[in-house]
Structures are given as C-alpha cells and as structure tokens.
C-alpha cells in the first residue's frame, strides 16, 4: 500500500512535468503547425543555464531561477526569429527540417560548451526537504510539482480564454491568414507563444532535474519526445489535452516501472503513440480537420 501510494505520487509528479513541457509543443503546433523538435533541447539548455547561474556565478537559487527562466525565453524567441520566421511561407517539411537542424545545433553546442560529461544539477535546499505522508515519504518537490503545474495550467487557460491576447491566439490557431486580415499582429502572437512555451519548459526543467542526479547534452531529447507523445495523445493544439496526455504518459511510465518492466517503459510510450494515432489520429481532444482540395 505504501509502495502504491509512492508510485502514485511519483507518477503524478512526473506526469505534471510532462504536462508542462507538452503545453509548449501543443501551443506551437496549434499556431504554426510545426513540431518544434528543438523544444526538448530548450528544456535541456534551461537546466544548463541554472547550473551556470548557481554554480559558476554563485547566485542564490531564488534569483537564478528568474535569470534562468528569462534566459530560456530569450533563447526560444531567438530560435523562432532566426530559424522559423524566414520559412513561414515555405512548405511544412522545410520548417520541420529547420526545427530538426536547431535541435542538432543545440545538442552539439551544449556538448561543446559544457562537455559531454554529465554535470551535477545544483540542489535547491527547500525543494529537497523530505515530507512524510503516513508511511510514505517523499521530497517536497514531488508534492510541489503537481501544484505548480495546476497553477500554471489554470493561469494559462484563463489567459487564453479571457484576455484579448488569448483571443488573438485562438484566432491565429483557427485561421492564420484571416487572423492577419483582422489586424492581429501575427509575429507578436507567435513570439508570445514561444515565450509561454519556453517559460513553462524552464519551470519544468527545475522540477525535472532537481530529484535527478545530473544533466548531459542529450538529457532533453527523450523527455522531449515523450512530451510530444503526450501532446499528440491529448490532441495536439489543445491545452487541456496536453495536460491529460502528460499525466497519462507519466502514470503509464511509472506503473511500467512498478511492475518491473522499466526497460520497456519508453517502448510502451511509443506503442501508445502509434495506437492512438491509428485509432484516433487527432487525439482525445483534437479537432478533426477536413482536407481541402
């Protein structure tokens, strides 16, 4: 029973991190129709920024957190301006290749700048305190993660639903060209999407790497793929869908590990992806799109 509770906690915790990252994928896809392959690597870079701020510059954690989030956002927006904006009218395949190129560049850049050896993630003392739940014990970050996640998601949903910017975002994702004709500043909206997506990825990276021992240049690629699976599972383009997908993927993964099949937990995630794509290609909450001739 204690074990079960602990697995549930771990599943919810990892699930909410996946949800945070999946939102980044789903928002970018909703607006640009682009799988941002670089998103997982932005997540990895965020971890290195944190190491840089805390270890190399000895800045206290509450300040370096903000510095790191801002640096990640700047990186994301720069990537959008340099690598995606010039290709806005190009075929979709070109943009996807550009995204793959950015991911390749970030991984190689990280290997060059920070070396391929794993680096220890700085510990944030408050997050690592142990909390007891009856007989189950866990660190504070495990409890805090879902709370932060839910807070972020509700904030985001409110933003999308009730503000003028949110309305513009919804309009752009419905129809790019018409939105432009209605006087919406497309470029600002796209930048904002990247700001939100990268900000959430940065928050996710603190929560993801704190309980884990180390960061290395390829650390972002597998979580990135899994979060993309989560976004597809929930229906890409839908924020609640990404959250549900994130939780499902996180829970499934934890239970595969609990059953003793930890080798196959990633296989299961990808099998889940293929099954979902086959039977419901638009995911749980995705809208069906008719193809125009």
């Amino acid at each position: 029973m204690t074990n079960f509770l602990q697995y549930i906690l771990a599943g919810i915790s990892i699930g909410s991190i996946y949800a945070l990252i999946a939102i980044g994928y789903t928002m970018v896809y909703g607006i640009l129709r682009l799988i941002n392959f670089a998103h997982g690597d932005i997540f990895m870079m965020a971890a290195y920024f944190m190491i840089f701020a805390m270890v190399d510059f000895m800045i206290p954690w509450y300040i370096s957190m903000f510095i790191m989030i801002i640096a990640t956002i700047v990186l994301g927006v720069l990537i959008e301006k340099i690598a995606y904006k010039p290709l806005r009218t190009a075929p979709r395949m070109s943009i996807m290749i550009s995204a793959i190129g950015v991911s390749y560049l970030l991984q190689n850049l990280a290997t060059y700048l920070f070396s391929a050896l794993p680096k220890q993630y700085p510990s944030i003392p408050i997050l690592n305190t142990t909390v007891h739940f009856g007989e189950a014990s866990t660190s504070l970050v495990t409890i805090l993660t879902p709370i932060i996640c839910v807070g972020c998601v509700f904030g985001l949903l409110a933003l999308v639903k009730y503000t003028k910017v949110g309305m513009a975002m919804r309009a752009v994702s419905k129809d790019f060209e018409t939105a432009q004709l209605m006087g919406i500043q497309i470029n600002n909206i796209i930048s904002l999407t990247f700001v939100i997506g990268c900000g959430l990825a940065a928050v996710g990276s603190i929560l993801y790497f704190t309980p884990r021992p180390s960061v290395f240049p390829l650390a972002g690629s597998l979580p990135g793929l899994k979060c993309f699976v989560a976004a597809v599972f929930g229906g890409i383009g839908s924020i609640p869908g990404a959250v549900v997908g994130g939780f499902v993927v996180g829970m499934c993964e934890t239970f595969m590990k609990a059953v003793g099949l930890s080798e196959f937990s990633d296989v299961f995630t990808f099998v889940l992806l293929i099954i979902v794509l086959m039977f419901r290609p638009t995911g749980l909450f995705g809208e069906k799109m008719a193809e125009k001739v």
């Binding site: 799988i35 996807m96 793929l225 992806l273 293929i274």
Partner: peptide, 24 residues
C-alpha cells in the same frame, strides 16, 4: 498501419518505431 497517417504524424510515428527498435 503507419502509412495511413498524414505528414508530421507519420514522421513522429516512424521516429517512435526507430526508438522502439533501438530499445528492444
């Protein structure tokens, strides 16, 4: 199974397959 998917979904599904092969 996979070929019914459209452009980027096909890309992701095949990417998933490659990872499955590698892990298996």
């Amino acid at each position: 199974a996979v070929l019914r998917l459209k452009s980027d979904y096909f890309a992701i599904a095949t990417l998933g397959l490659a990872e499955i092969v590698r892990i298996c």
